[in-house]
């Protein structure tokens, strides 16, 4: 087991709209175990800051297993840091070397206002889902689960899209601060499945509108989102969303059979 010293700079911002700045916490980031996770490194730094009477760095986190989508920061210019397909909480310090300079700043997008330090408000993702990210089925009214067979490829495809954890790294990475990757994954998950067909075009139209109204940028196919996505969500879903959206807009269809 080896310990490393880091040149750590962390973005500090008191509240929404306040001006923030990078603080140099190198003296609190000495002797960090390479087996610790990135958030555990911040825990250690926080504990030391508190000893010096400095308010701990605020960052969002919960599961620390890479599944809840709470965590996320831009580490040396890359959302979730240097390791591919890895959330900030799953990033481990063995990815860094002794003496490395590390800059940590929050996801930046107009639609994700900063709450404090590294924590941002991703409520707009919920707004997008509320616009149509569901299949309308009242509890208790479902037919037997095996009534509708779903071809395995279709089901697997829907699953691939559904693994999005809603972390927002795609927005942080996109040069346009577009949430297209998240949006398209959510749409594709439901639009692929037979259960999702009746509301397919209405869902697409409403969710795309909600995305635009929320203030996210549009997609110009940079694919940075895909590179940053910890779950490897593919930009192919964006093409699929575009197709469904165009059909919805041009034909004015609301349902598949409308």
């Amino acid at each position: 087991m080896s310990d490393i010293n880091l040149k750590l700079h962390v973005w500090r911002q008191e509240s929404r709209g306040a001006t923030g700045k990078f603080e140099d916490y190198s003296k609190y980031a000495e002797g960090i175990s390479t087996h610790a996770s990135f958030l555990e490194m911040l825990d250690v730094v926080n504990e030391r800051l508190a000893e010096d009477g400095i308010r701990p760095i605020v960052f969002d986190h919960d599961c620390r297993e890479g599944i809840c989508g709470s965590c996320g920061a831009v580490i040396n210019g890359v959302p979730h840091g240097p390791q591919k397909l890895t959330t900030t909480c799953q990033l481990h310090m063995r990815q860094f070397k002794n003496g490395d300079e590390i800059w940590v700043e929050p996801f930046r997008a107009g639609a994700f206002p900063i709450i404090k330090d590294l924590m941002v408000d991703r409520g707009k993702f919920d707004t997008i889902i509320q616009a149509g990210g569901f299949i309308s089925i009242r509890t208790g009214s479902a037919p037997d689960a095996n009534e509708i067979p779903v071809p395995k490829e279709v089901s697997d495809g829907a699953f691939d899209a559904a693994t999005c954890i809603g972390c927002g790294a795609c927005v942080a990475a996109c040069p346009n601060a577009s949430a297209s990757l998240f949006l398209s994954a959510k749409i594709a998950h439901l639009n692929l499945l037979p259960q999702g067909q009746p509301e397919r075009y209405k869902r697409t139209r409403q969710m795309v509108s909600a995305h635009d109204e929320a203030g996210f940028g549009g997609c110009t196919n940079h694919k940075e989102c895909e590179a940053a996505c910890p779950k490897g969500i593919s930009t192919d879903w964006i093409a699929k969303m575009n197709r469904d959206m165009l059909i919805a807009t041009i034909t004015g269809k609301d349902g598949k059979f409308a």
Binding site: F134, I135, I137, T139, G140, S141, A142, P143, D144, A145, I148, P149, V150, P151, K152, S155, D156, A158, F159, A162, H189, L190, L193, Q195, G196
Partner: peptide
Amino acid sequence: IDQAVAQGVPFARE
């Protein structure tokens, strides 16, 4: 299970 499948939960399939 019926409810979840109707909602679009992509359970593993054969």
